[in-house]
Structure formats: structure tokens, C-alpha cells
């Protein structure tokens, strides 16, 4: 079975700068894939390229193993993108939702399709008569989603779908896209800053940083610049006066990452390990990880460490407790600039 979408050696430049560089990426049909990463990491660019709304500078996008380009007539009828700030045509809600159906040459059944799409996103069918400027931000986003769901796409890409909407709209959006997957097998690709939302919703999460896919999650990222002491060790001072020691960075401004699995919760340093003291701020259980994840605040940084379930029994890791984190500087990896 071919993946629904596949990228191969895709590179995208903007103003002479490479903003996306992906050697290989596959998205299986019927799955929910999350895209996580800080601002400027390339999430929106990747969504545009996957949805064929933009052409990559080099590389190939495959739809079911067939190379496709923007304006490919078949691909455009299968894939739809909901941008972060969805644009509504200066028309009624009905015209906005039926637009995609009309340009596909469907002549009848608009009314039923529009009403069904509105209900899917939790809006009353009477909304159909409203104009684009009579909607709140959350309603506009739901109407934009309804316009895409009316097309019953094979793949729906959503860019920060709940970033600027109220809780009720966020709940309706989540329910509608899950229903689309269940009813029509729609593949969902969602870019979001909301890590817990992605953790909860997605089958797979792809972490992007500077346009590249990371092998690990984006927790425990330490941004430069790095200083050097008179023992030629590189370090960074946290807000509470503690120091994080790192191996020599490729660049003084490079960003480092400590995988949550290599952070140990222990009482005292051993061998060449370094320690940090922090306060537990929360314990999280996540379907993507077999072990609970402990959030620990050290100065102005929040670290995430994985611990076996059994370690929770003693109550030493309850929120508010002070704990010691230890790590080996050699386990710290560098993110490419």
C-alpha cells in the first residue's frame, strides 16, 4: 500500500534562505499526523507544499506514489488546506461553503451539503444566510472548515486550527475533523503549537526545527548563546543562578536538545554527570510514551523527564517537590542551524 502523501528530497528556499529541507516524509492514509515546532520551523511551508498550494524549490511530492504539482486537477480535488487565518469570500456563508462544490461542477444538492457541513462543525443551518462580516472569529474558522469538509477530501491539512478561536469552537473543530476521519477515512495533518492537543489527537507527531525533521521531540531545547569559562567549558546560566554545561557547540548561538529519556531524576551526581535542581510542576501520562513524563522547572526553563511508573509510588515526584536532575553533557545533541 502506497502512502497517501510522500515527500522526497524536498527543499524550499525563500529569499535565498532554505526554509525547508526534508529528505523523506510519508503520511499513511487515514492517519492523523501532527506537526510541532517553534515559529519559523517550517510547519506552514510544509503544509502548503503537502497541500500543493505552493511549489517546492526542488524535490518531489507524491500522491499515492504519483508525482504531483500545484494545480494538478485530480490532486486538488483530493487535498484541502485550512490556513491559520482562513479567508472567507465576501459572500454569504452558504456561498462560501458551496464554492468548492460549484467549481467542481456539482449543480445540485448544495443546500443539503451546506446544511450537513454546518451541522458537522456545530453551527445551525440558519447560519447559511449570514454574510462573512457577521461572524465571530471562531464562527468564521468553523465556516472555513465546513467549506472544506463539504468536499469530503481524502486529506485535510490544518494550520493552527484552534490558535485564535474560543474553547467551544476548538471543541467543535476537533469533533468535526475526527468525524471526517471516521466517516470518510480522511487523512489529517495538523500543525499546532498546542503540544497537549497534538499528543491527544495524533497517531504520529513530526517535530520540525529550522525546516528539518528532528528525530526527537522538541522538549528540552536549550537556545544559545553559549558562554565559555576559564576551564574552556561551555555553559549557560539559568535565571536562578544554576549552570547547564554542554559539549563544545558547533556555533556559539546553536541550540541544544536533551532527550527526555536521558534526563535522570537522582539525588547526587555520579561520574561525569551534571545536576540541576528544580521543582516538579506536573506529571503527564501520554499515549505516545509508555512512561509518565515529569515536568520540572529550573529557573526560567522547563525540563521534561521520563520516569518508570514505579518511581511515582513514593510521592517524591508530586508537583511542588524539589528534585535533582542529572545528565551527561555527552548526551546533549545539537540542532542544525
Amino acid at each position: 500500500m502506497w502512502p497517501l502523501l510522500r515527500l522526497r528530497n524536498v527543499r524550499h528556499n525563500y529569499n535565498g534562505r532554505t526554509v525547508l529541507d526534508i529528505a523523506e516524509l510519508s503520511v499513511s492514509a487515514g492517519t492523523i499526523t501532527g506537526l510541532a515546532g517553534p515559529n519559523g520551523s517550517g510547519k506552514s511551508t510544509l503544509l502548503k507544499i503537502l497541500s500543493l498550494a505552493a511549489r517546492c524549490t526542488s524535490g518531489t511530492v507524491y500522491l499515492r506514489n504519483r508525482p504531483v504539482l500545484p494545480f494538478d486537477p485530480e490532486a486538488h480535488r483530493r487535498i484541502s488546506l485550512l490556513p491559520q487565518e482562513a479567508y472567507l469570500l465576501r459572500r454569504t456563508v452558504f456561498d462560501n461553503i458551496s464554492y468548492g462544490l460549484k467549481i467542481r461542477g456539482q449543480k445540485n444538492q448544495f443546500r443539503d451539503s451546506v446544511a450537513a457541513a454546518l451541522e458537522l462543525v456545530g453551527l445551525d443551518p440558519s447560519f447559511a444566510g449570514r454574510f462573512w462580516n457577521q461572524l465571530s472569529g471562531g464562527e468564521a474558522q468553523r465556516v472555513a472548515l465546513a467549506a472544506r469538509l463539504a468536499l469530503k477530501p481524502d486529506c485535510l491539512l490544518l494550520d493552527e486550527p484552534t490558535a485564535s478561536v474560543d474553547m467551544e469552537s476548538a471543541r467543535c473543530i476537533r469533533r468535526a475533523i475526527l468525524l471526517a476521519r471516521r466517516e470518510w477515512g480522511t487523512t489529517l495533518i495538523i500543525a499546532s503549537h498546542n503540544q497537549s492537543w497534538l499528543d491527544d489527537l495524533c497517531d504520529t507527531i513530526i517535530y520540525l526545527y529550522n525546516g528539518r525533521i528532528l528525530e526527537c521531540s522538541l522538549e528540552n531545547v536549550l537556545l544559545g548563546p553559549w558562554l565559555q569559562n576559564n576551564r574552556r567549558e561551555f555553559y549557560k546560566e539559568l535565571a536562578d543562578g544554576q549552570f547547564i554545561h554542554v559539549p563544545p557547540p558547533p556555533h556559539p548561538d546553536s541550540s541544544a536538545v536533551i532527550a527526555s529519556a536521558v534526563l535522570k531524576l537522582s539525588g547526587a551526581p555520579s561520574g561525569s554527570s551534571r545536576t540541576l535542581t528544580g521543582t516538579v510542576s506536573g506529571i503527564f501520562f501520554d499515549k505516545h510514551f509508555t512512561e509518565p513524563r515529569i515536568h520540572i522547572v529550573c529557573g526560567d526553563h522547563r525540563f521534561v523527564a521520563c520516569v518508570p511508573d514505579m518511581n511515582l509510588n513514593g510521592g517524591d515526584l508530586l508537583p511542588g517537590r524539589t528534585v535533582t536532575l542529572s545528565y551527561q553533557p555527552e548526551d546533549i545533541s545539537w540542532l542544525e542551524k
Binding site: S51, S80, L81, L82, L89, I103
Partner: peptide
Amino acid sequence: SLRPTLISLGATRMQIFLTSVRE
């Protein structure tokens, strides 16, 4: 965001032109 919106809804180049003129 008009252009990416129209592309995402499956519009052809001519449909993008006509819709943009209308907008």
C-alpha cells in the same frame, strides 16, 4: 490568504482569476 484559500478549495487558475476579480 485568498490565493491559498482558493487553491485549497480546488480552484483552477481561471477560477482564481474570476474569483479574485469578484473579491
